[in-house]
């Protein structure tokens, strides 16, 4: 098991280095960084001095090592567009994205499990069939279209909820701002959270339903019924419990996807998070910002994948046994 962990760790480091190299080569491809920093009137000599001072004349491998070293310390340079350190801008925007992602994941998980159990227990019910059909449409509907439809219905026609921004936020520590403590902040969160969580909701619901149907057919459920246990206890204590392992795994893996898909939701709702930051960085070719986001999101994915892999071993004793 230790060997496997080490192998996975090395693999993760390789992935991070590859992503870092892509992020680094962005700087090489995209124009001349000097042109982006000095004004039109800078002389050739001033340019050459700046070039030397920034270490742009060093060989590529050394520049890459320096990039990795800086990135490991959270230093990604200065944004071309905002003229501020990239790390500061990202730290400022990150709470908005994390808050949105957490609330969406919670929404997807609770509704997904609930609806999944319901559709599994009432298999041929009218409502179950309706939910399954709607979920098929939900899978085909692009995220941004869901957002626009929700805005049109709840913000434009009904005027119940705000359609953009985070509402009023409260600063609870130096770098964490939350919208959860104000009424306008909470109202602003509803539509983006539903938009972002809907796809995961359908996924979790279908998964729970399939797993439940599988488990309900097994002998120990029949035996529990034969013992005359209450239906409720069988469904929730015996059946649901055994379906949750894959659900937790999938949800864990999906957490990274949620953060990635936040790019779309944040654009639709003008949510001031890192996704919106990244899209604007691509649009304006703000290379330091792009590269920092790439490294950050890759790190999130790699860490989540690693945790899920380790959890497998912790949770499932059979995997541990075979590796000895």
């Amino acid at each position: 098991m230790l060997a496997m962990l080490i192998r996975r760790l090395i693999q993760s480091i390789v992935v991070m280095l590859v992503v870092a190299f892509i992020a680094f080569s962005l700087f090489q491809f995209v124009g001349d960084p000097i042109n982006n920093m000095v004004g039109q009137e800078a002389s050739a000599q001033e340019r050459a001095e700046l070039r030397e001072r920034l270490g742009l004349n060093d060989p590529i491998p050394i520049q890459f090592m320096r990039f990795v070293g800086n990135a490991a310390q959270g230093n990604f340079g200065i944004s071309y567009r905002m003229a501020r350190p990239v790390s500061a801008v990202i730290a400022e925007r990150l709470p908005a994205t994390l808050e949105l992602a957490m609330i969406s994941a919670f929404f997807a998980l609770s509704m997904g499990i609930g609806l999944g159990v319901y559709t599994a227990l009432k298999r041929s019910g009218v409502l179950s069939n309706f939910i399954m059909t709607v979920s098929l449409i939900g899978v085909s509907l692009p995220t941004f279209l869901i957002g626009i439809l929700l805005i049109y219905i709840f913000a434009v026609e009904l005027r119940w909820l705000p359609s953009f921004g985070r509402g009023q936020v409260v600063r609870i520590s130096d770098w964490w701002t939350t919208g959860l403590l104000t009424p306008s902040g909470r109202a602003s969160l509803i539509l983006p959270a539903i938009t972002l969580g809907l796809f995961q909701l359908t996924l979790i619901m279908r998964l729970v339903r399939a797993e439940m149907l599988e488990v309900l057919r097994t002998d120990y459920i029949k035996f529990a019924r034969a013992r005359g246990l209450a239906q409720r206890s069988i469904h929730f204590h015996h059946a649901l419990k055994n379906t949750l392992l894959p659900v937790i795994t999938i949800t864990g893996l999906q957490l990274g996807t949620i953060i990635a898909f936040a790019i779309i939701t944040e654009t639709v709702f003008q949510w001031p998070g890192v996704g919106l930051l990244f899209i604007n960085a691509i649009r304006f070719v703000d290379v330091p910002m792009m590269s920092a986001y790439l490294v950050l999101i890759a790190l999130v994915f790699v860490v989540i994948n690693l945790i899920v892999d380790v959890l497998y071993f912790v949770v499932d004793p059979r995997l541990r046994a075979t590796k000895h």
Binding site: L26, F29, V30, G31, F278, I282, V285, V287, M290
Partner: peptide, 11 residues
């Protein structure tokens, strides 16, 4: 896709 797009945009 976004990543490739970003790189291509630079090239």
């Amino acid at each position: 896709a976004l990543m490739i797009f970003g790189v291509m945009r630079g090239v």
